[in-house]
Design a protein around this nucleic acid. Structure first.
Length: 273
DNA sequence: CTGTTAACCTGAGTGC
DNA sequence: TGCACTCAGGTTAACA
């Protein structure tokens, strides 16, 4: 479900409701996510105030009083919503509730349970899931020169290279495909064969696609929703993702798709080389 | 080191 | 209706 624009949409929606509020109770109905939720998570978070809500890649980071952080990931199907006092009764896949001051309820729903709720202890210098991540796409370090240098000698597909979190964070299957379209690059091209100018175009395309998607509140294909349940609208702006067989919106050539690393990868055979 | 594949899990959609 | 099958926004672990 969520790539960087969706996670950022959720972060912005949650921000005014969470920051500064104390966690009064934690209910874990099913701890079996990607990794099990630690048995005594409540003992570590209840009574603590939420000091900040940040994002690193597709992870949300809740900074708590006392220095611990909660690391939340939504996997493929996770949703986070905040309800005012009197939240609806929990339904299927409502695995975790945080009850906050004022009766607010932050609820994690995740049918496929690929998501995660992990504690990053104050004393730990880093976290294994965060430490090796590449730059944020809007970090000044994410440049065409960086991609060019990093890709030399690499034979993997440029799309897989772009989706690798150690290259850059936040580009999942939708936005990698869309950025490659805008840069005129075929997803199956060997990363090491892409020129420096093309990587400069790709960085600009990643910026353009991600910022447009954030502005639109993300992409709602089936079930993505923001912190209050609202849909995103970027799906109207997709050029290749999920458009196999339809005509290219630039040149009218039928969009094709092939599988790259287990993922469907749409492209225009005329616009992308 | 690089690259590919299977695995985690549920639900929706399709075709017979 | 029912069954079998494929596919889905992510990421890691286990391989060659």
């Amino acid at each position: 479900m969520p790539e960087l624009p969706e996670v950022e949409t959720i972060r912005r929606g949650l921000l005014p409701h969470l920051v500064g509020r104390r966690i009064e109770a934690l209910t874990v109905r099913n701890p079996q996510l990607r990794w099990p939720i630690e048995p005594d998570l409540a003992g570590h978070v209840v009574g603590r105030r939420i000091l900040a809500l940040d994002r690193r890649g597709k992870y949300l980071l809740l900074a708590l009083e006392g220095g611990d952080r909660l690391l939340l990931h939504l996997g493929m199907s996770g949703r986070l919503r905040v309800f005012p006092a009197g939240a609806p009764a929990p339904g299927p896949h409502d695995h975790v509730d945080w009850r906050l001051e004022g009766g607010l309820c932050l609820r994690l729903n995740d049918p496929r349970r690929f998501g995660a709720v992990l504690r990053w202890a104050a004393a730990a210098p880093g976290h294994a899931l965060i430490d090796h991540l590449g730059p944020e796409p809007f970090d000044p370090a994410f440049t065409g020169d960086y991609l060019y240098a990093r890709s030399r000698g690499r034979r993997c597909a440029v799309k897989a290279f772009l989706m690798d979190g150690e290259t850059v964070v936040g580009c999942g299957n939708i936005y990698a495909a869309e950025a490659l379209f805008r840069a005129g690059l075929r997803p199956g091209r060997a990363a090491g064969s892409v020129s420096r100018p093309a990587y400069h175009r790709l960085v600009e395309s990643v910026h353009a696609v991600l910022s447009a998607a954030i502005t639109q509140g993300g992409t709602t294909l089936r079930d993505f929703a923001g912190a209050h349940g609202e849909a995103g609208y970027f799906q109207q702006d997709l050029y290749v993702y999920g458009r196999e067989g339809q005509r290219c919106r630039v040149c009218a050539t039928p969009i094709r798709s092939r599988r790259i690393g287990q993922r469907a990868s749409g492209y225009c055979p005329r616009c992308q080389r």
